[in-house]
């Protein structure tokens, strides 16, 4: 299983890098679906004993359904339902975004090695991936101008937090703590619903956050 989990983590890292370069909203959404599925599979691969109760398995299936189906589905619906440009429209170019992503991996590896957790190698890798995903999500939020891509950045950050929680709570007895991260997915859903509803009722042609710049000092 160890080989399996490393491959999964590598694909998650690649999905982060890929999302920083993708110029199409649709490919970004598909990537998020893939990433959500992989992230929610990690706890099973880590074979956390407490998750192997019937209750734990149900929770795992629910997480998988939400992260891999519901949220990407909602994003897809938003993209097709409302009139929104298919381009991502970055504030920071794609090449420099990838450079930032690579830098993030280095920083994450450094941090993960220096947080001396008394566990074996796999955990450090999970932590590295988690920090990269978190940072990548934050960067995506800041460097893309569309409301929908900001929500996608937030979703990626949320995936990072879920991974981080998974890595940390392996030994602790507080069983169902990471699962509260699902409430962040609820926030994502609310934001996407907000985008959909406002476009329908107010007929904006686009929700570009660059337009949202009237309030400032």
């Amino acid at each position: 299983m160890i080989g399996g989990i490393e491959i999964f983590l590598a694909i998650i890292l690649l999905s982060v890098l890929f999302s920083l370069t993708s110029s199409r909203m649709m490919s970004l959404i598909k990537l998020m679906g893939l990433q959500g599925a992989l992230v929610s599979l990690i706890p099973v691969l880590l074979e956390i004993e407490s998750r192997m109760h019937p209750g734990g398995i149900i929770l795992f299936v629910v997480m998988l359904a939400i992260k891999a189906l519901c949220i990407p589905g909602l994003l897809y619906f938003a993209l097709t339902r409302i009139v929104i440009g298919r381009e991502v429209e970055p504030l920071v170019g794609y090449h420099s975004s990838v450079a930032v992503g690579l830098g993030l991996i280095l920083v994450a590896a450094y941090i993960a090695h220096h947080l001396n957790i008394s566990v074996e190698g796999v955990h450090t890798l999970v932590l590295t991936t988690a920090i990269t995903t978190l940072g990548g999500g934050l960067f995506l939020m800041m460097s893309r101008s569309k409301a929908l891509s900001q929500v996608i950045g937030y979703l990626m950050m949320d995936n990072g937090i879920y991974l981080m929680g998974t890595a940390l709570t392996r030994q602790t007895r507080s069983i169902y703590l990471v699962e509260f991260g699902v409430l962040l997915d609820l926030l994502v859903a609310v934001m996407v619903m907000g985008i959909i509803l406002n476009n329908i009722s107010r007929a904006f042609d686009d929700v570009d956050t660059l337009d949202l710049e009237q309030l400032k000092d």
Binding site: L134, L138, M141, A147, Q150, Y154, M157, D158, I161, M164, G165, L168, T169, Q171, T172, S174, L177, V178, F180, G181, L184, L187, V190, M191, G194, N198, R202, T209, L212, E213, Q214, L215
Partner: peptide, 30 residues
């Protein structure tokens, strides 16, 4: 709309980081 969007987005990031902080505090109980 602008104020609400900023409010929800920025506070949500804050909330997410706070959850991460709570994970760390839980981990410190090890």
């Amino acid at each position: 709309l602008e104020a609400t969007w900023k409010y929800v987005l920025i506070c949500s990031v804050g909330i997410a980081l706070a959850l991460l902080g709570l994970f760390f505090i839980t981990f410190s109980m090890e």
